[in-house]
Design a protein around this nucleic acid. Structure first.
Lengths: 214, 214
DNA sequence: TGTACATCAGTGAACGCGCGTTCACTGATGTAC
DNA sequence: TGTACATCAGTGAACGCGCGTTCACTGATGTAC
C-alpha cells in the first residue's frame, strides 16, 4: 500500500490538552479508511502509527478500535448531510434543488469511494442508522415533496419515491466504483434520468430525457 | 462466529483423484464467504480447516487464497445468471418475465447477503467482470427490449433502462442488508414499482402502482 | 523562593494468537521387471 | 509371484509478521506549602 505521510517527530500535547489526541486518531483513521473502505482492513496499530503515536495511546481515549471507526462514520455522515443540504440550498427551484442534492450525494461517494463504502458496511456495532443518516434521507423526502408542491412533479408518495431514489443512487455509486470498466453514461445525465423516471420531474432544467413516454 | 460443521476425520482421495480436493476447498471457501461476504475476512487457514485438511494442502491446487475466492465468485455468478434465466423463462409474457428475473436477482442477493456482496467487492484481482456477470446483464437488456416489443412498455433505450434497473436492484438489496431497521416496503411491491417507474411497464400483472402519473 | 508531590500525556516491553508460505517428510498405491 | 521403485495425496514443523490488549513505567508540568 502507499506510504504514510506522517513524520515520526510528534510533540506531546500540552497539559490539559490530551484529548486532542482523540481527534488526531480519528483524523488518522479517516485517512486510512478513505483508502480501504473497510473497518477491519484498518488495524488499530495502523491508526496509531498514522497518528505518530504508540499503540497503547489509543486506549487513553477509546475503549477499542470500533469506537474510533465509529467516530469516523459519524463525522462522514455529518459531512454528507451538510454537502447535500448545501447543494440543495444553492438551487433556485425545488426540482433543481432535488437534482443538486442527488448529485452532491453521488459526488461525495465517488470522490472517496472508501469513505462512502464504510458508511454502509455491515458489521458496524449496531451503529446502524446514525441520526445524520436519517437527516440526509429526510432531506431527500422533502426534496421530492417540494418538487410535487410546485408542480414540477406529479402527486406521489414522497417516502416511497425517496426510497427508490436513495437505493438508485446507492446502487449507482457502488457499482460505478466496483465496475469501472462498465460503459457508464455521464453521471449528471444518469442521475437526471433517474429522477425523471422515478420521481417524474420534468427534465426542463437539463438536456432531453431518454425516459419512456418522452 | 459459528462453529464449523466439518468433522475432523477425512479420508484422503484415491489415487488420481487428488483434484477433488480443489473442489472441496472451493466448497469450503463458499461456505465461509456466505457468512462474511468479504474475501479478506476469510483466511486460507480457515478454508483448509473448514475442508478438514492441513493448510499447505491448498498449495497443491491453488497458487494462493485469491485463486480460491475467485473460483467461488465465478461459481456464484454462474448460479446467479442461471437463477435469473430460469425465473424469466418461467413467466408467460415479457413484462412478467422481466419482473420475475428481477425478483430472482433480489432473492439470490437477500438469501445469502455475504454470497452476493463478495461478487461486487472491490479489491478482487482485476477479475472485475466475469462473462457470466455480463450474461446476466444481457438478460436484463433483453428483458426490457422484450417488454417494449410486445407493447408492455413504451419505446426506450433498453441499455440505458437496464442500467438503471440494475443499479436500482443493487442498491435495493445492498441497503436492505445493511439497514434492516429501515421501514422497507415489501420486496415484490418495491421491485414492481421500480420497473413501473424506470421501464414504464404497465402494472397490470401486479397490484396498483404508486408511481407518478398513476 | 524552594521543594515535595500530584497529575498528566504518552511509552516500551511483553502476552498469546492467527496469518501466509516454505520445506522436507510420510505412507499408501500403482507399475516394471 | 515377489520385490524394488515411482508416483501421488497430503502432513507437521517452522519461518517471520502484525495483530489487540495489558502492564508497569517515564518524564514533563503544574500546585501546595
Amino acid at each position: 500500500m502507499e506510504k504514510s505521510t506522517r513524520t515520526s517527530t510528534r510533540t506531546r500535547n500540552p497539559r490539559g490538552e490530551g484529548s486532542r489526541l482523540a481527534a488526531e486518531l480519528v483524523d488518522a483513521a479517516e485517512r486510512l479508511l478513505l483508502g480501504t473502505g473497510s473497518a477491519d482492513a484498518v488495524s488499530l496499530r495502523a491508526i496509531t502509527r498514522e497518528a505518530g503515536v504508540s499503540a497503547p495511546s489509543a486506549y487513553l481515549h477509546f475503549p477499542n478500535k470500533e469506537a474510533i471507526v465509529g467516530a469516523v462514520v459519524d463525522r462522514r455522515f455529518l459531512e454528507l448531510a451538510d454537502r447535500i443540504r448545501a447543494a440543495a440550498d444553492g438551487a433556485v427551484e425545488p426540482a433543481g434543488s432535488l437534482l443538486a442534492g442527488c448529485l452532491a450525494y453521488c459526488e461525495f461517494a465517488l470522490a472517496e469511494p472508501g469513505g462512502y463504502r464504510v458508511l454502509f458496511a455491515t458489521g458496524m456495532p449496531d451503529h446502524t442508522a446514525p441520526s445524520s443518516g436519517q437527516a440526509a434521507f429526510s432531506t431527500l423526502v422533502e426534496g421530492v415533496a417540494g418538487a410535487v408542491e410546485t408542480g414540477a412533479a406529479p402527486p406521489q408518495d414522497a417516502f416511497r419515491s425517496a426510497t427508490l431514489v436513495w437505493t438508485g443512487l446507492h446502487g449507482l455509486v457502488m457499482l460505478r466504483s466496483a465496475r469501472p470498466a462498465f460503459p457508464w453514461p455521464p453521471l449528471e445525465e444518469l442521475v437526471a434520468d433517474l429522477l425523471a423516471r422515478v420521481v417524474g420531474v420534468s427534465p426542463a432544467a437539463g438536456g432531453p430525457s431518454t425516459a419512456p413516454r418522452s
